[in-house]
Computed example of a mutant assay.
Amino acid sequence: MAAPAKQTFGIPWPELNDGLFYTDVVSSSDSGLTLIEFYSSKYKNSAPLQGWLQRIQNGQITVDGTVTTGPSTRFSDGSRLVYHRLPWKEPDAPYLLEVLYEDDDMIAVNKPSGLQVLPGGLFQQRTVLSQLQWRVRKKTSSVASQGKHPVPVHRLGRGTSGILLCAKTKLAKTRLAMYFADGTSIIGGNRNSKEESKTVRKITKVYRALVHGILEQDEVIINQPIGIVRYPGVAKGLYVASPSGKQALSKVDVLVRDLQENRSMIKVEIQSGRPHQIRIHLSFIGHPLVGDPLYVSGGQPRSVDSEFVDESFAHDGCVIIP
């Protein structure tokens, strides 16, 4: 008997996305500034002076709903400024998602490596969220789609493949988020060991990964805080192993030891959900993930020339597999 065909969905990505709109409401401290003074000082990291001049002259900025091309235009307290970042072609990404389970409240999909879950950086449209929203619009009328709010309730790194749970309603999102929170609450250290032993998690996160080196122990518990440090090219900072960071706990079990290739296939269960936790924890114990472009032994980033670093460098992790 033939196996049932896999159910997939997805719409090929448009050539260009829709661009982005950034809104500012002018405060009293900025009242009286010219348009070029406001943008070139407040967002100087986004573009140099000449870049903002070009954007203004291109008609990409409105003041209180009116396109304004004069860089010397002044505005008052409470004015609404909107900058339109023009559409661009996002980097290549897969678009098909395999449905593993679905009911009226949730859908579980197999997220492929290379697809970002939520908008960020260069990926604003080529995301799981976009495909979920497009699917709802395609399957239902505008009236029937009311109350439908498909959204992932947790994240997997862009380079990570695996099961992604997505809520289809606001209520389902709230409930699922609560279940995920229940699974990480003991990390706070407010429960004693007796209470922890009675904890039953509704959701458990388990991953498989390929790492450099041979782990000697069959089981390893990694209890290393994760914090943020400044890093060139990453505006909001980079997550690293840090004594002053938030608590994070990972349980590692060795599945296969490949002595010839000097690699180990492992299973990782995380009881917290810090960004890049698996990548950081495995590198912290001296076994970085195979193919990780960023983290090296010690849970720290490799030293690189900032000229060659961009925001996406911190989000690539292409070795965690289902």
Score class of each variant (00 low, 15 high):
101 Y>G: 00
72 S>Y: 02
182 D>H: 07
171 L>C: 09
300 Q>W: 06
160 T>I: 14
22 Y>H: 10
173 K>E: 12
223 N>C: 14
34 T>M: 11
16 L>E: 15
8 T>D: 05
156 L>A: 11
306 S>P: 15
9 F>K: 14
212 H>K: 15
280 I>R: 02
127 T>D: 08
61 I>W: 03
226 I>G: 14
202 K>G: 15
20 L>G: 13
243 P>M: 02
230 R>N: 11
289 L>I: 13
288 P>T: 04
129 L>P: 04
307 E>K: 13
292 D>G: 05
248 A>Q: 02
157 G>K: 05
242 S>Y: 01
120 G>A: 06
113 S>R: 04
78 G>T: 03
306 S>W: 00
214 I>F: 01
62 T>Y: 08
299 G>H: 03
37 E>G: 13
19 G>L: 00
133 Q>R: 12
33 L>Q: 05
214 I>E: 09
133 Q>E: 08
77 D>M: 10
181 A>F: 08
14 P>Y: 01
63 V>N: 09
295 Y>F: 10
232 P>R: 05
157 G>C: 09
136 V>C: 11
173 K>Q: 14
16 L>M: 04
103 D>H: 06
271 Q>A: 12
211 V>C: 12
81 L>T: 08
161 S>L: 03
253 D>V: 03
275 P>Q: 10
194 K>S: 15
101 Y>S: 02
223 N>R: 05
92 D>T: 05
300 Q>R: 08
98 E>H: 05
107 I>Y: 12
212 H>Q: 15
158 R>K: 09
247 Q>N: 15
297 S>F: 01
264 S>N: 08
111 K>Y: 01
186 I>S: 09
118 L>K: 06
254 V>S: 10
217 Q>F: 02
123 F>V: 00
239 Y>A: 15
23 T>W: 07
250 S>K: 01
49 L>R: 12
285 I>D: 08
49 L>M: 06
235 A>W: 00
139 K>E: 10
163 I>F: 03
258 D>S: 11
146 Q>W: 00
280 I>V: 12
288 P>Q: 07
84 H>V: 00
303 S>R: 07
179 Y>A: 15
307 E>C: 12
168 K>I: 03
218 D>R: 06
65 G>M: 01
178 M>D: 12
36 I>H: 05
205 K>I: 05
251 K>W: 02
270 I>V: 15
151 V>M: 13
82 V>S: 07
24 D>V: 11
130 S>I: 00
265 M>R: 11
92 D>N: 07
154 H>C: 10
289 L>W: 01
249 L>W: 00
304 V>L: 13
56 I>G: 14
9 F>P: 08
17 N>Y: 15
88 W>D: 10
111 K>T: 08
305 D>Y: 00
157 G>M: 06
213 G>H: 00
9 F>C: 13
265 M>W: 00
100 L>R: 06
311 E>T: 08
47 A>L: 12
168 K>T: 01
74 R>L: 06
117 V>P: 08
141 S>N: 11
14 P>C: 02
268 V>A: 13
158 R>Y: 09
2 A>N: 13
278 I>E: 06
284 F>T: 11
136 V>T: 12
43 Y>I: 11
13 W>C: 14
103 D>Q: 05
309 V>E: 01
41 S>G: 07
4 P>H: 09
114 G>T: 02
215 L>D: 13
184 T>F: 10
144 A>P: 06
279 R>E: 12
161 S>C: 14
254 V>L: 08
215 L>N: 13
109 V>C: 04
